[in-house]
């Protein structure tokens, strides 16, 4: 050991003293650091922050993107999602969920549901203030509390929401059966179902005294969990670098498509085209091509294949079920039925 006895101790004390004074300033020693007076003030979170999932709607809550395809339910590792598909009064299934429960005491916030959703319907929220006064029923988030608008999504995750909007060309049209009157929702639920202005998290600037702040906070806490909450974002918008294109799924385990269709490409494989246009583009092609053109062109795998795979399976007679195309709805089903009947396969 070099130096006088106690040298190590004195050096250590000098470092401690320097850090003690330095802890009052930020890294560059320029600005004074203050404590965030939580819960009146909250620290901004980075954009990618994820906690629990929520469902996105475009415009009004009944225009939710979710089609109850149950992909998220299947892929969720701790199995915390519970979906029941809605049906119209005649019993015909609809492309929307009647029940969508997420047990947030089980949810591990992995984000896999948001990654696999073919419709960009479920995304990760950044709200972590979800404490309730009960352990079981209170910690299950039901459909009304999960629905948040696309504007909210833009607010919490601007870059991601922009990218999703750019790739989403097909907006789900509300199916006619959805006009069936739903039971009158209670006031807390009604607050969510009608698009409300987003609530701020910090008290307004004109509330100054501690008592007023506390009163505001109490009122604010009483509505927690019933409406969309705005989280203050980091002020720096993350520079958008062009994201690599999402890889197209590899060809499903069905026989390779006939050479003729590949030679001409697949011009109908664009989810922005409507059915008539797609059938027009495919009109002189093989049966499998025409079947594929009738589908929704999303490659969402809700049917268990991708669009090309499902078309091949139908053409080869591997499956006869024409109802599997969830986003395609009735028009796809009818077109597939017609085509297969003409070809004598049904």
């Amino acid at each position: 050991m070099n130096g006088f006895p106690g040298k190590g101790l004195l050096e250590g004390l000098a470092v401690t003293a320097k850090n003690f004074i330095g802890s009052y300033f930020d890294d560059n020693r320029k600005e004074r650091l203050f404590t965030y007076q939580y819960p009146e003030e909250r620290m901004p979170l980075p954009e990618n922050s994820r906690t629990f999932p929520f469902l996105v709607y475009d415009g009004t809550p009944d225009q939710l993107r979710c089609t109850a395809c149950k992909v998220c339910e299947t892929e969720c590792p701790p199995q915390c999602i519970y979906i029941v598909r809605d049906s119209d009064p005649n019993g015909k299934p609809l492309q929307r969920p009647k029940v969508f429960d997420i047990d947030i005491s089980v949810c591990m916030q992995c984000g896999i549901c948001a990654e696999v959703c073919p419709f960009d319907a479920i995304k990760m929220d950044c709200d972590f203030e979800r404490s309730q006064h009960g352990r079981f029923e209170e910690l299950v988030a039901h459909l009304p509390s999960l629905l948040k608008s696309n504007d909210y999504y833009h607010h919490i995750k601007p870059t991601e929401a922009d990218r999703v909007d750019a790739t989403r060309k097909r907006v789900k049209k509300p199916s006619p059966a959805a006009a069936a009157p739903a039971p009158t929702p209670g006031p807390a639920v009604a607050a969510v179902l009608s698009p409300t202005p987003l609530k701020p998290m910090s008290p307004p600037a004109d509330i100054l005294t501690e008592d007023e702040k506390r009163a505001w906070l109490k009122g604010y806490q009483s509505i927690l969990g019933t409406g969309p909450i705005v989280w203050p974002l980091t002020t720096k918008k993350i520079a958008t670098t062009p994201q690599p294109p999402t890889p197209a799924p590899a060809a499903a385990a069905v026989a390779t498509p006939p050479a003729s269709s590949l030679a001409g490409g697949e011009p109908w494989h664009d989810s922005g085209l409507d059915l008539a246009k797609r059938m027009e583009l495919a009109k002189d092609r093989s049966l499998a091509d025409r079947l594929m053109a009738a589908m929704a062109q999303l490659d969402c795998q809700a049917c268990g294949y991708d669009c090309r795979g499902y078309a091949n399976a139908l053409a080869a007679g591997v499956t006869r079920d024409v109802t599997l195309c969830a986003p395609g709805e009735d028009e796809t089903k009818n077109t597939l039925e017609t085509l297969l009947k003409e070809a004598g396969k049904l």
Binding site: Q79, C80, I81, Y82, V84, K98, V99, D101, I102, D103, V106, F136, E137, L139, V140, H142
Partner: peptide, 26 residues
């Protein structure tokens, strides 16, 4: 558990446990 699935729901019903309204409705 409030959101029983599949085999968990079957076990709950077999044991006479309560299931939440949403599961019963379905």
């Amino acid at each position: 558990e409030p959101t029983p699935h599949g085999e968990t729901l079957a076990r709950a019903l077999a044991q006479g446990g309560t299931v939440p309204t949403s599961a019963r409705e379905s």
